[in-house]
């Protein structure tokens, strides 16, 4: 634990050294979270991964683009409204809810057995070759091992569980594989990221790469990173998955959106997540 924190601190310092003061727009701040197990340092600014080196030097968590009060809510788990959902998922984790009374805990013991998963998903599963999000893994257990109907991809049960599982990787560095079996999915996601959709003819890159740091009406445009997902959104008073956010962004271009868990959005999530390689998983973050 001690060494883990030390490594994060070094990464953080390196990130700040590389950015210097050149980019004034994202708020210059750093995130330490008060947790039940002490203070956890979160990497919210770091050098861009190599695959982005021709478009940007530095990557920032969306946390840097939010107001002081919103950022403050994430500094202490006691204040973070998203923790309610994590608690709710812990009950679900322990509950005998399978067709034959199976529970998550029965197979996996504590939720800490999920440590590390969120930092490397979406990923191509080594045994099946399928592209898997955390939600896909959860549903595999729900259907195949517990004999239940699949949980809705954006339903409360699923989002609560995603929050609990993400929390187990909080503070770990996002490290999405983009080569090997992941390469075709990564390419497909990249293609979508740069496609100008809808009647407004806007791509993800138009807003989150070309215009990051600028204001589109009252909205301060972040880099559209997904390391903080699921996020608690003050506006919705609920938690939101990355693909739900994609739905909103694509809809706002006057486009026909893709559905959560579609092949397109899964590939896009893998690609967008890889743009955050080097940032920390934030567990449940808070946005406005």
């Amino acid at each position: 634990m001690q060494r883990h924190v030390a490594r994060l601190a070094t990464t953080l310092a390196l990130g700040l050294a590389l950015t210097g003061t050149a980019f004034a727009d994202p708020v210059d701040d750093s995130l330490s979270i008060e947790t039940d197990d002490g203070v956890l340092e979160i990497v919210t600014t770091t050098a861009a991964p190599a695959h982005l080196s021709d478009v940007m030097d530095t990557i920032y968590s969306g946390w840097h683009f939010r107001e002081d009060e919103t950022r403050a809510l994430q500094r202490d788990d006691f204040d973070n409204p998203g923790m309610v959902y994590v608690d709710r998922a812990l009950d679900s984790w322990n509950k005998a809810q399978g067709a034959k009374g199976e529970s998550c805990a029965g197979c996996h013991e504590g939720p800490e057995s999920m440590k590390g998963l969120r930092a490397v998903t979406p990923r191509v599963d080594a045994t099946t070759g399928a592209l898997m999000t955390v939600e896909n893994y959860v549903n595999e257990c729900v259907t195949d091992r517990m004999g239940l109907e699949a949980w809705g991809m954006t339903g409360d049960k699923m989002k609560d569980m995603l929050a609990l599982i993400s929390m187990q990787s909080r503070g770990e560095v996002v490290n999405i594989a983009i080569d090997g079996a992941a390469a075709p999915f990564w390419e497909a996601g990249k293609e979508i990221y740069y496609t100008r959709f809808g009647q407004l003819e806007m791509s993800c890159a138009n807003c989150h790469e070309d215009n990051q740091g600028r204001y589109i009406r009252a909205d301060h445009l972040s880099q559209g990173q997904v390391n903080g997902f699921p996020v608690y959104r003050l506006k919705d008073a609920g938690i939101l998955t990355a693909q739900q956010r994609f739905v909103g962004c694509v809809r706002d271009t006057r486009a026909e959106t893709f559905k959560p868990d579609s092949a397109e959005f899964k590939a896009l999530e893998l690609y967008v997540a890889s743009r955050g390689n080097g940032l920390s998983v934030e567990g449940v973050s808070v946005r406005h």
């Binding site: 009647q199 006057r254 486009a255 026909e256």
Partner: peptide, 23 residues
Amino acid sequence: FMPAFYKTEGFTRPGAAYSGKAP
């Protein structure tokens, strides 16, 4: 980056206004 306000063709996956659905 400025949207074309008087154009009706040539879009990728256009939606019916901000509904997210196909027109």
